[in-house]
């Protein structure tokens, strides 16, 4: 695999694999329950029993961070799947059918791109209350237009190629053409955008949780742990700092993956994928 010769890509894959293992094995490797409170032992400094100390309810910070890996990965995967499938269909339809369908879709995409993604998610959560599902839907909706824009650009470059013309000439139906030629060829650049979306989705979820609008406490999300530690920044800085480092590790991994894919793919894609960052 040529991808694995890219050092950044390799580091990204290794980091993500480790995080995946942590997420799957959370029940076994977490020293305690992430929700178990111990009011006799609140805000404890790091010790053998609590490697990263405890929070204001005496919950083990390390265990909360380990379980938080699950929620973050869940958000990343769900947002990626949702925005990828929606965005690809919208972009493919716009690029492939052209005409007024394309004009209308493109202007809708442009309008949606004007919204700061985080703000869009914030508005949706504000109107409908916050839960893991709302957060995922909100962030995915914010990223769908970005995927759609890239998908359309790719489809436009594939459409005039000779093999597509040839397939059409021998009577292949539009749908078959789309799924046999257009979709597979557009996957790599779209996946690059999706990786970046997943990275940003994790930051957005953390931001929403930090504002108290994400996954509701006491759920152990990294954003919640940072918010919990904010009031005790002076006395127990480790709570907030360690959770932030967890977020950064996962986002770095996803960004390295995206950079690696982009560099290895057609260098021409560098610009179009860079633009949507």
């Amino acid at each position: 695999m040529r991808y694995f010769r890219h050092p950044g890509f390799l580091i990204g894959v290794i980091l993500l694999t480790l995080l995946l293992i942590v997420a799957v094995a959370a029940p076994w490797i977490a020293p305690m329950s992430p929700l178990e409170t111990d009011l006799a032992n609140t805000l404890a400094p790091p010790s053998a029993a609590h490697l990263l100390g405890t929070d204001q309810f005496g919950r083990d910070v390390l265990s909360r961070l380990i379980w938080g890996t699950r929620i973050s990965l869940q958000v990343a995967v769900a947002v990626m799947a949702l925005s990828l499938s929606l965005g690809m269909v919208i972009g493919a339809v716009a690029g492939f059918f052209g005409g007024w369908v394309e004009r209308v879709t493109v202007s809708i995409i442009d309008i949606l791109l004007a919204f700061p993604g985080f703000l869009l998610a914030l508005a949706l959560v504000a109107a409908r209350g916050s839960s893991l599902e709302t957060v995922i839907i909100a962030v995915a909706l914010a990223f769908t237009p970005r995927v759609a824009a890239v998908m359309r650009a790719v489809v436009l470059t594939i459409k005039p190629r000779t093999y597509v013309e040839a397939s059409r000439a021998i009577g292949m139906g539009t749908m078959r053409l789309l799924f046999l030629h257009v979709v597979p060829n557009s996957l790599p650049p779209v996946i690059v955008v999706a990786t970046v979306s997943a990275a940003t989705a994790i930051l957005a979820e953390a931001g929403l949780s930090f504002l108290g609008l994400g996954v509701q406490p006491p759920a152990p999300t990294w954003g919640n742990v940072i918010a919990d530690g904010q009031s005790f920044l002076a006395s127990n800085p480790l709570i907030s700092l360690s959770a932030g480092i967890c977020i950064a590790v996962m986002v770095v991994a996803l960004n390295l993956l995206g950079d690696g894919l982009r560099d290895t793919l057609d260098p021409q894609m560098r610009r179009s994928s860079g633009r949507v960052l």
Binding site: A199, G207, A234, G244, I247, V251, V252, L256
Partner: peptide, 22 residues
């Protein structure tokens, strides 16, 4: 720069409060 785009901005804010104010 990679780390710059990977740390949540509010975390950078908290860390800078810790370092530069406290």
């Amino acid at each position: 720069a990679l780390f710059g785009i990977s740390f949540p901005v509010f975390w950078l804010g908290l860390a800078s409060v810790l370092l530069f104010s406290q």
